[in-house]
Design a protein around this nucleic acid. Structure first.
Length: 649
RNA sequence: GCUGGUGUGGCGCAGCGGUAGCGCAAUUGAUUCGUAAUCAAUAGGUCAGGGGUUCGAAUCCCCUCACCAGCUCCA
């Protein structure tokens, strides 16, 4: 007999060798039905896993990550099974469960078309109907390799060869389909109740662009049809908030073929929001002791040679001049700046600095140019020219922690104010020791500064994840990440510690002891890139930005033309207080004007007719709450000014 | 950069080898109206750009550009 401790702490006794699934059956029929996998002493296992000693057991259903992953992972096997039936020559790569579904990569002669997906879905239905049990088996390494060689699966052979010594090499079989797989899986294909293939895309084998591009099929699955439908609806709803659609519709920005990719035109509304954000950021930075600079947008390559950009970032730069001259030392070559650091450092370098001057904080609303690869551009989120709330702090080692904390505080204050604070995650971006040539500096220097950064992050209690190979070429970063409506993650704000560029540029200060020393440099943004921030705000608020950020805050709607005069008076009074307002003087019915203002997401509509004109009132309609009734114009102004000043959401 | 998809009046779409169409928006006229679409008329298109096939191309083929999703890369 063995003792099994369940999730609720209760202990049950069973015969040795009972499976996790059988335990579920003993607990309740309902649990057995919902059971997908099991967690045994912290390890996720199949329900068929035999319990052979005392253990902690947690039966996993779709509500748990482990259960969901098993369910979707099995769906990906069904996908692969269907593809193999329809395209026997397809070679299998990998097919994991991912956040909201699964994918499977195939090497096929001809890419899958959307019609192919429909056929594959049909075949999957059949496999599910056949209710094939999934059986796990293990092979020794050599046999495993021979097995997959016989099945003509070179990618699987490669995977097996790279499995660490001593690792159990397991396979799962369902009918005539077998896949190399660590598992776990649900007991049979018939358990899959609702699934859908969502899209096909190319994906490099092992994520390396030097490797062959495979065909990836994405899909998702749920235990209930209704949950799948709900998920699809949610995806569609999210896409309606897409800034790239909404931002264009609402007149925030546009693009023009003959201007070029990644070069959006900010229209009056977009430009206004960015100006509001910029003023807010610059004012706040000034309060926090930053000194504003304005430095050139381009420089000779000599500057970038010192900074390392010429050797480590050249592909990302727009270089002005004949590429044939690049190797000619005497040619004068300019490049648009991809970062502000080497420029802003010149301010520090303009005279000899004393420790008394440190920390020195410089900020700049800085336009940058990066030659992104052509497939990378995306609305306002990834562009080739953008403006960033850039800043650099030079400080002594003993000031590093406090200055770093100040940057984090500023970033969080910005996020909170614009309402994005609950949507971000923190990433500690480190270098990749296997790829040293991508970075400047030595291994010792990197290990030291990363250790320092980790200490600071831990002390500040920042809940970060770690990412190798995501550092800047000159130092590690704390990246504040955010996801767009498609679930794609991008960096919104970054705070970086740099100990190398100060040395390269000869930045020094005279310390108390009279010695020349290199300062630490913190590269940081406070709200990141304005274009990207605007995009994410549009998505967050579905275009209905908080009043303080709205490009048009009030639209005055006269009932008929005899009210135009009073409407203009109202307009003047609003503008007097700095409220962004306009009048709709078109010869249209009031319902029509309201509908348009509502669709343009203008926070307040002021309806003015005889009653209002007589009493110096306005009939207020809020885009959120609808008709608020008439009130004195003065009262409305007080109300909206308060809302704007408090930056209410 | 790679894989796949898309490109028709301001926007959303139809047409897929035989004179370019619909809805909304726009303009003009009428209507003077109280909280999400008043009525009528009118105008607007090198069918992304270039090349080719054809008696004839929005439609078929090639190249380029842009847009979308994914990969890779990155703020």
């Amino acid at each position: 007999m063995i003792k099994v401790t369940l999730k609720d702490g209760s202990v049950m006794e069973f015969d040795n060798g009972i499976t996790a699934g059988e335990v579920a059956e003993r607990i309740s029929a309902g649990l057995a039905r919902a059971a997908l996998a099991a967690e045994v002493d912290g390890e996720v296992r199949d329900l068929g896993y035999k319990l052979e000693k005392d253990c902690n057991l947690n039966i996993l259903t779709f509500d748990s990550e482990g259960g969901r992953n098993a369910y979707r992972h099995t769906t990906s096997h069904v996908l692969a099974h269907a593809v193999k039936r329809l395209y026997p020559d397809a070679k299998l790569a990998i097919g994991p469960a991912i956040e909201n579904g699964f994918y499977y990569d195939f090497d096929v002669e001809k890419p899958f078309s959307p019609e192919d997906l429909a056929a594959i879905e049909k075949e999957m239905e059949k496999i599910i109907k056949e209710d094939l049990p999934l059986e796990r088996f293990v092979l020794p390494r050599e046999e495993a390799i021979r097995f997959m060689e016989e099945r003509n699966e070179p990618y699987k052979v490669e995977l097996i060869r790279e499995l660490p010594e001593g690792e159990e090499i397991s396979f799962y079989r369902q009918g005539d389909f077998v896949d190399l797989c660590a598992g776990p899986h649900i007991p049979s294909t018939g358990k899959i109740k609702a699934f859908k293939l969502l899209q096909v895309a190319g994906a490099y084998w092992r994520g390396n662009e030097k490797n062959k591009m495979l065909q990836r099929i994405y899909g998702t699955s749920f235990p209930k049809k209704s949950e799948l439908d709900e998920y699809i609806t949610r995806l569609e709803e999210a896409k309606k908030r897409d800034h790239n659609k909404l931002g264009r519709e609402l007149g925030y920005f546009t693009t023009v073929d003959y201007i070029g990719q990644g070069l959006p035109i900010l229209m009056p509304k977009g430009a206004k929001v960015i100006q509001i954000l910029q003023r807010f950021v610059e004012d706040e930075e000034e309060r926090r002791g930053y000194m504003l600079t304005k430095t050139p947008l381009m420089a000779k390559r000599e500057l970038y040679k010192i900074s390392g950009h010429w050797d480590h970032y050249r592909d990302g730069m727009f270089i002005i001049g004949d590429p044939e001259d690049f190797e000619n030392e005497n040619a004068e070559i300019f490049a648009l700046r991809p970062m502000t650091c080497p420029f802003q450092f010149q301010v520090y370098l303009s005279k000899l600095r004393s420790y008394r001057e440190l920390p020195m904080r410089f900020n700049e609303t800085s336009t940058l140019f990066r030659n992104e690869a052509s497939g990378e551009m995306h609305g306002l989120i990834r562009v080739r020219q953008f403006t960033i709330s850039e800043g650099h702090i030079a400080c002594m080692p003993e000031q590093l922690e406090q200055e770093f904390a100040g940057c984090v505080d500023l970033a969080n204050y910005m996020l909170k104010t614009v309402g994005l604070d609950t949507d971000v995650t923190y990433r500690f971006s480190k270098w990749d020791p296997a790829n040293k040539e991508k970075y400047i500096g030595t291994e010792e220097q990197w290990e030291e500064v990363q250790g320092r950064m980790r200490e600071i992050l831990d002390k500040l209690g920042i809940p970060y994840t770690e990412a190798e190979g995501e550092a800047a070429f000159y130092g590690p970063k704390l990246d504040i990440q955010i996801k767009n409506v498609h679930g794609k993650e991008d960096t919104l704000i970054t705070i970086q510690i740099d100990f190398l560029l100060a040395e390269k540029f000869g930045m020094e200060y005279i310390d108390r002891d009279g010695q020349r020393k290199h300062p630490y440099v913190i590269h940081r943004t406070s709200i990141g890139c304005y274009e990207r921030t605007l995009a994410l705000l549009i998505e967050k608020y579905a275009g209905a930005l908080p009043t303080w950020l709205s490009p048009v805050q009030v639209r005055v709607l006269p009932i008929i033309d005899k009210h135009h005069e009073y409407a203009r008076k109202v307009l003047a009074a609003l503008r007097e207080k700095g409220i962004r307002a306009e009048v709709d003087e078109r010869n249209e019915k009031i319902g029509y004007k309201i509908r348009e203002a509502q669709m343009e997401k203008i926070p307040y509509m002021l309806v003015v007719g005889d009653k209002e004109a007589e009493n110096s009132q306005v009939a207020v309609r809020s885009r959120k709450e609808g008709d608020l009734g008439a009130m004195p114009l003065e009262d409305f102004i007080k109300k909206i000014v308060y809302e704007i000043e408090t930056k209410a959401k």
